[in-house]
Write a protein that binds this DNA or RNA. Structure first.
Lengths: 157, 157
DNA sequence: CCGGGTTAGTTACAATTGTAACTATAATCG
DNA sequence: CGATTATAGTTACAATTGTAACTAACCCGG
């Protein structure tokens, strides 16, 4: 490890910290809005969002696409089923696997929330030039891939 | 609200979601490393990081600079005091206010962790051109400012 | 000075989230 | 087949985090 032993680190310039703060600010704003307006948590919103686009997924498939673990999905789905927004049946070919779909009420929530969410995103990005936006999002993609590699195992340094 | 009622939203293109996933990936990697190597939580690490740079802060001042609330700071400091990494005294001018400083052991932790943290950051950014890095971080700054404005009150749409 | 309001920080309690064990089906292989 | 192992999802419990009430110290107007 060829790093100067006397290196200095200011939190406000440290990327992981800055990502965390920004993500938190944004998520808190959205979570508050989802909760107030639709009685939805962020995990629940994520489940609705993927089921609206691809109905019939299993819980594991939902977990994959929402970057949540299976327990979080189970809880979110339980809540959504309770409030009549998701219907749960069992796959006839494999009775362990669930088949999740939005009900009419679930689709309605999705349709009402999407304009709100997109508008929030639009306003967040409003002051960036289109070229800045696109560079930012492609960098985000690359960082995500990179972080995935570095993360779990990359604990040596 | 002039938004098409039929708008569609894919989670994987939705910026708040992507920020959350990336921040999570990065934080999990770091939290694991901090915990394993130094027995430190992320809140504790943040407190150490600001106290290393500006000793003698009060808990409220630490909260401000770490984007944590006062309860989180209180808990982190309690833990650090228990492990002999932070010293807490009371300000003689105002005996409610605490004066927080790192002990020698606290400074040692900081000095050992900084190279690790910077190395992680360096590797995360390693594949980006310098110009991409700098644009990314300036955009991050602008988004943070913007999100701060949109957030708390901005719940009208 | 002294009562009402304010601020710093902690403590207590509630809600959320993570981790591990469990149940039920299904797949594999001797 | 039938015993073992694996997979899907849930449930139970632990740890973390958020929210609200509290204590102690200060401040200020009367």
């Amino acid at each position: 490890m060829s790093v100067p032993a006397s290196a200095i680190l200011d939190l406000e310039h440290f990327l992981p910290y800055r990502l965390s703060v920004l993500s938190n600010t944004v998520s808190t704003a959205l979570a508050g809005a989802y909760a107030r307006r639709f009685g939805l948590s962020i995990p629940q919103w994520r489940v609705i969002a993927v089921l609206a686009r691809t109905p019939g997924l299993s819980a594991a498939a939902v977990a994959e696409r929402t970057a949540m673990d299976k327990v979080a999905v189970s809880r979110a789905v339980a809540g959504l089923a309770r409030s009549g927004r998701v219907r749960r049946t069992l796959a006839q070919s494999d009775r362990r696997r669930s088949v999740l779909t939005l009900t009419a009420r679930g689709r309605e929530v999705y349709m009402r929330i999407v304009p709100y969410a997109l508008e929030y995103e639009r306003r967040l990005l409003a002051e960036l030039a289109p070229s800045e936006q696109s560079l930012f999002t492609t960098v985000l993609t690359r960082l995500q891939k990179r972080a995935g590699l570095l993360g779990p195992a990359g604990a040596r340094v």
